[in-house]
């Protein structure tokens, strides 16, 4: 008994203490989403009455068109995730398997440019898209189409880099065999490589989805109209420092918006941890 205490007590103590730290804000936000009053004032840690008023508010108030925001987020994030993986996979395949001049230079450039944080180029992106707006408002500043294009461009570097790592880990014997059988590179890509890589592509796709879902600053700059906003921008603008009156609905909204992401994340845990050690940092 004494030995058990000496060897294990501190482990449980540390784990429990940090678990409390990590659950503290989450528990409180769930608690306040179930309250009727608007504030986060916590009178007790145990809810006395449970009310879904905040949740119903979200689905009915024109001040916070939660479902529209949520749909926007899903549409934007899935468009970006699917297209960027589709485009990125082809580039990654070329960088990983094909031999061509300038390959080394290309990879180095990709690596270097990736270090230029996207937020820094934001004023340039702003000015460029403002100019695009003058002739094509649908894909210029203020439109979801424009935002998707910017996201797609921005995700290229990371995705190609990440996908290349995955592609490198897929054994090359199969596509070499296909080559010997007379298949062209394009055929090898579609018939051998893509079916093999589908699980990996799906994972990168979901990671890209999470990343886009989480993006705030470009979305804030682009999406000015209430009904065009993503969930992140919508809720941020909705709370807008007015914690007193809007806290309850915000709490409910942030929980609902987080659930799908948390589920995706937990189910992908194994892959994400592997990806982490490859040097990518989740934003």
């Amino acid at each position: 008994m004494n030995k058990w205490v000496r060897e294990n007590l501190w482990r449980h103590a540390v784990a429990i203490a940090v678990c409390i730290f990590s659950l503290f804000p989450l528990y409180l936000v769930i608690l306040s989403s179930l309250k009727t009053t608007g504030s986060l004032q916590v009178s007790s840690f145990i809810p006395h009455e449970i009310s879904f008023a905040n949740y119903t508010y979200l689905f009915h108030s024109p001040k916070a068109p939660f479902l529209t925001w949520f749909r926007n987020s899903i549409v934007i994030a899935s468009t970006v995730a699917i297209s960027s993986v589709f485009i990125g996979a082809a580039s990654a395949f070329a960088f990983s398997r094909l031999k061509f001049r300038g390959k080394r230079l290309g990879i180095r450039l990709l690596l270097l440019v990736q270090m230029f944080p996207a937020v820094l180029a934001i004023s340039a992106v702003y000015v460029i898209m403002e100019r695009v707006y003058t002739f094509a408002p649908k894909i210029g500043l203020g439109s979801q189409g424009g935002l998707i294009l910017v996201y797609l461009g921005g995700s290229m570097g990371v995705n190609i880099w990440l996908l290349k790592g995955f592609v490198d880990s897929i054994p090359a014997e199969l596509d070499e065999a296909a080559k010997i059988d007379g298949a062209s590179s394009v055929q090898t890509y579609w018939l051998i490589f893509l079916p093999l890589a589908t699980p990996v592509l799906a994972v990168v796709c979901l990671l890209s989805f999470i990343g886009t879902f989480n993006e705030f600053i470009l979305a804030r700059l682009f999406l000015v109209e209430m009904n065009g906003r993503t969930i992140a921008v919508g809720l941020q603008q909705f709370i807008g420092g007015q914690y007193a009156s809007n806290w309850g609905p915000f709490a409910a909204g942030s929980i609902l918006a987080s659930i799908p992401i948390v589920i995706i994340f937990l189910s992908l845990q194994r892959f994400i941890v592997n990806g982490l050690t490859a040097g990518s940092v989740k934003g």
């Binding site: 990590s22 804000p25 999470i210 879902f213 705030f216 914690y243 915000f250 942030s254 937990l266």
Partner: peptide, 30 residues
């Protein structure tokens, strides 16, 4: 439990923390 903070969308958790430290209505003060 320990990876929950990492699994949450960070935009949401940051806004939640901002509310918790609000001086008038935040949970921390209360």
């Amino acid at each position: 439990i320990l990876i929950l903070p990492y699994a949450m969308p960070s935009v949401m958790s940051i806004l939640i923390w901002a509310g918790m430290f609000d001086s008038d209505f935040g949970a921390v003060n209360s």
